[in-house]
Nucleic acid binder design. Structure first.
Lengths: 241, 241
DNA sequence: AAATAAGTGTGATTTAAATCACACGAACTA
DNA sequence: TAGTTCGTGTGATTTAAATCACACTTATTT
């Protein structure tokens, strides 16, 4: 409860934290390995959605691209995250793409294999519902943040989420352990690179963020960010990128 | 497949269409009735999310309200829809409100009772996953439509969704069987009443919509609307309001 | 039938954000 | 080491949308 209290390096919460050791073993038993190189796609918009993917190593961005090339990044998944949809009909298709930002190690799970296990084991079913519920709550909370508080609120919300997913607590603030370019942030927010740059400059001037060597963002006034997007201190598993 | 081909009056698809007769009987067996008067709240933002609600009769709007009073309507549920979350932890809370727009007849389902059934019956689990999956897909597709194509695209997308949920096919177009005010539409889109009014006037001038007696909208050029939000002809159970 | 409330339609103005344009620095790369 | 790519920083301009202000129409109430 309450965001950004973690002392760990980063990725403190994966969306698979809802699974018990037992369930995880079932998953492992039906998983087969796959490598995805940097900048390759794990799957494309409109591909048949008949698999789930467990991200062992690397990073996957889920994106939606318009015909004019405008890109919206819906999620950034980390090692330990499970990617995909469950319970969809056999001819269902993804309506987003999944792109590896670096070399990835993935475990592929056939939806059908998983549904067999779910069918047989009630506790697995309930855990998967929790996983689905969490994923939906993440989407809903982003929807709200990006729609209701203007581009500035959207940026502040995104910085908080990045802090929860990549933040390292220090005495002087929360440092993001990964560099995000202005363009990266713009795609997360649905705005232009220039607008992000101007807003970040402003936040820097106001003492809300500073920049570490290498350009990594350090958040020095979390309260300001929370206020800008009417943060409701939702649980860490939901307030993520 | 393909939107707006229905000849029926309206509400052709409920989110409970994924359930088998058998599952539905389980639901009925643990449901108890509740009345909610017009303009009353079924639940409030931050209430404990330990129940599901089956809407037998009436209409429920799911809304998120900011501190400044700006309102965003996330869904409008109809008779036959199931409302709520499943698989969340016992201390989980709604982060949106549910308001009856008219007198409602609701069946209340304790989450715990349902989880017991899910635990025991694999087929129920799988059907509920499909339900959850659908709900998430609705949220995601709205997110995309409202973020990527400006306010005009957002309005056009919303009109298509309304057509799918309330449209009655006629020889001259698709008539919405319910009146939606400019303010209603503005809250669905996250914009101002004036902007909706101006956009609708423009669409009328361009011959995309007309107004029936009583002010109900009739869509006369669906292709135009689809084009404005890069409609991907997603299935009817997802392209709803 | 008059009064009140709720909804529509539109101008004028302000504000937010996108777009265009270009200078500059840092980081690779050949 | 010169060239190229990639990212940053900022002005100027345009466009989209919100806000303000008010007239007018249509329901609803008493």
């Amino acid at each position: 409860m309450g965001a950004c209290t973690q002392q760990q390096n980063f990725c403190s919460y994966q969306n698979t934290d809802v699974f018990s050791k037992n369930t995880f073993q079932y998953l492992e038993s039906i998983m087969y390995p796959k490598k995805v190189g940097a900048d390759q796609f794990l799957f494309l918009d409109n591909d048949t959605a008949d698999k789930l993917f467990y991200l062992r190593e690397g990073q996957i961005k889920i994106t939606k691209v318009t015909e004019e090339g405008k890109e919206l990044v819906l999620y950034i998944f980390q090692e330990g995250d499970l990617i995909g949809e469950l319970g969809v009909s056999s001819d269902s298709r993804y309506n987003y793409s999944a792109k590896a930002t670096r070399d990835c190690d993935v475990g592929v799970i056939q939806q059908q294999d998983l549904e067999t296990i779910i069918w047989q084991h009630g506790e697995v079913a309930v855990e998967f519902m929790k996983w689905m519920s969490n994923m939906h709550a993440i989407t809903r909370s982003k929807f709200r943040d990006l729609m209701l508080y203007g581009k500035k609120g959207a940026l502040c919300s995104t910085l908080i989420r990045l802090a929860n997913s990549y933040g390292k607590m220090t005495s002087s603030g929360i440092t993001l352990s990964q560099h995000f370019t202005n363009t990266d942030l713009a795609e997360l927010i649905g705005t232009s690179r220039e607008t992000v740059n101007r807003m970040l400059s402003q936040l820097k001037k106001e003492g809300v963020v500073t920049f570490e060597a290498g350009g990594n963002i350090k958040i020095t006034d979390l309260a300001y960010l929370k206020n800008a997007c009417s943060c409701e201190d939702c649980p860490l598993e939901i307030c993520r990128i």
